[in-house]
Design a binder for these strands. Sequence first.
DNA 1: TATGAATGAGTATTCATTCAT
DNA 2: TATGAATGAATACTCATTCAT
Lengths: 200, 200, 200, 200
Amino acid sequence: MPRITEERRAAQRARIVDAMRDAVREKGISSVSMSEVIERSGLSAGAIYGYFPSKDDILLAVAEGLAADRRTELERVIASSPIPPPSQVLRLLLTTIPEFARDGTLVLQVWAEAARDPRVREVFVGVLSTLQTTMEEYLTSWFTQEQRPDPTADARASTRVMAALVQGFLAQSALLEQTDAVAFSRGVAALLGEEPTEAD
Amino acid sequence: MPRITEERRAAQRARIVDAMRDAVREKGISSVSMSEVIERSGLSAGAIYGYFPSKDDILLAVAEGLAADRRTELERVIASSPIPPPSQVLRLLLTTIPEFARDGTLVLQVWAEAARDPRVREVFVGVLSTLQTTMEEYLTSWFTQEQRPDPTADARASTRVMAALVQGFLAQSALLEQTDAVAFSRGVAALLGEEPTEAD
Amino acid sequence: MPRITEERRAAQRARIVDAMRDAVREKGISSVSMSEVIERSGLSAGAIYGYFPSKDDILLAVAEGLAADRRTELERVIASSPIPPPSQVLRLLLTTIPEFARDGTLVLQVWAEAARDPRVREVFVGVLSTLQTTMEEYLTSWFTQEQRPDPTADARASTRVMAALVQGFLAQSALLEQTDAVAFSRGVAALLGEEPTEAD
Amino acid sequence: MPRITEERRAAQRARIVDAMRDAVREKGISSVSMSEVIERSGLSAGAIYGYFPSKDDILLAVAEGLAADRRTELERVIASSPIPPPSQVLRLLLTTIPEFARDGTLVLQVWAEAARDPRVREVFVGVLSTLQTTMEEYLTSWFTQEQRPDPTADARASTRVMAALVQGFLAQSALLEQTDAVAFSRGVAALLGEEPTEAD
DNA sequence: TATGAATGAGTATTCATTCAT
DNA sequence: TATGAATGAATACTCATTCAT
């Protein structure tokens, strides 16, 4: 018999997580104190600790928010015909990253946190595993369509390369402020020697 | 008229930087306190501050150690004939990363620090810029050899993709413990549809 | 919407200021550490910093407590008839100094602090200026009553001498433990060749 | 059989004491560190500790330098005929204070130190006692010349007032930057109702 | 004697967390 | 539930002093 509605509880949690996320994005994890979160969220220290048992748990929630599942987007791609080339898939993935997650700075911060907090790490391992599984399905279809001799083997080998491209893009956008996902996917097309498509 | 030799001075600095590097690798930047560094280095607090003006400066030195210039390796590749394909170049780059720097965990930590300390950021921007410049030269040669219609344009577009592959590999090895550089470059070859070479 | 009353807040501040004052009196400013204040006040470090932003601000509050305005006493003297002689005025000033401020040791400490912290200095300059202004009014009245040829000029010249007598008395009571204000004012009377009054 | 001449030893000590004195004058006792003294004196830490056993001992030497005996000046005054009035004596005392000691800031700092270090205190008690003894002799002569009914009693009572005027002047010159000794002694003359002398 | 690198206890201040209201 | 005052261990850094050279 909760004293407040589940809905309100979720809203309050969201306020806290948003406050932490914004603070981390602006100042870096190590510079964000609870008083920062208290101020930004508009809640009191006591109230916050009513929703999260510790600062690390708020960070965990931020990580979970970042690591949203991208399976749906990928699966839609696989179903289409003809199968689009890798550069198109990357473009889709990168351009549909939610606004707040595309900020490479934030992503870098949370990746670093994963080194410290195994629970955060698990979140990322989970989402990356999922991404790779679906990616492998896509690549198998693609290489099949491309009439590679051994599409399964090629897909298995190059799956993690696709994932690395996503991660590399994010790191790059944080460190070099090169944030243009479309230009990036065009670069992938160039590297792969893909035929230009109308979309570009 | 220094009472200790320049050599000893460098050795002491190295002890401090090594202590910080190991501590960061094991616990993450935000959990490393000066007392950790004091203990690991075997020097006293006062002695450490005789070599570095602040904790941040030690971190900067760690970053500088990580961001060693890779130009030489790349230039040797460009000079060779025939020009090796991108997967070979990546393989070379990744396998010649110095032991301590290949630790993705450490790299992620320092990337995150770059978000906080502009001096650290500058170190990485510097090394990445250099990498990309030389990479573009390589790609131009490669695409020329491949008889692409517009090798210069293709090189310009795909340079940052090659850099992203390096960064993505590092991030991945930290988060997923997939640290096999050779397997990764084989994946790149598969994705690019390169003809297998004898070396693999 | 403060959770503690303004009253309690003032009381807590007073505890801190009193602790600092006692510590400074006993050990000298330069030997007083925050841990001393923490111990004496019975508050925790964190609590103290909730009331004062820094150690210097506590010292400033101590100085402000010392530098209470003495104008009222002096103005009452000026209004009386006949105007009492300088020795009586000094006696009044010195004997009505609040108990804690008469401690010359403390005063010396805070004077020294004034050399370091401009805000502390300002506090003393302020109170001394006020003292001198009112003192000049008194001296003008006194010299007029004494039928000096140029009471205004004499008052202007000797105002700072009266202030110096107050300051000198305080310094002396700190360094020589000669703290008898009445004996001091009798000495002033002797020096000035005043007729003895009944009060002495 | 000293390894260095007594002369050189004294010169080195003087360099150290001067360095400390200048540093204290500029920054206040509590802000002066040994490294400040090391730098200003041009000697090394080790060398300094060869001449003084501790930082406090250097401060003590500074205090001793400040508290130079003023008896000679006063005794010359007493011997003169007619005996000059108090304002003239003060003027003499204040204007013959050595340059470095007239800086009220420095004096305040050392007075405060006297509260902490009994040895420093003793230095000041000593010099003030001497000053007062000689001052009492002067005042007895002066009051006798003035044909006071009880010159001895008046002298005994007002001796400390004369000392307080010296101390008050110094405190005032530190806190209010009113450093004109001649103006001050003129003010004393005005307060005492002395006949103006030619010198003024 | 002189050097200055090294020591390590000590400094002011912060901050995640608690708990009486 | 919500508040925010209070806690106190932990933080980065300083500095008087020592001692091998």
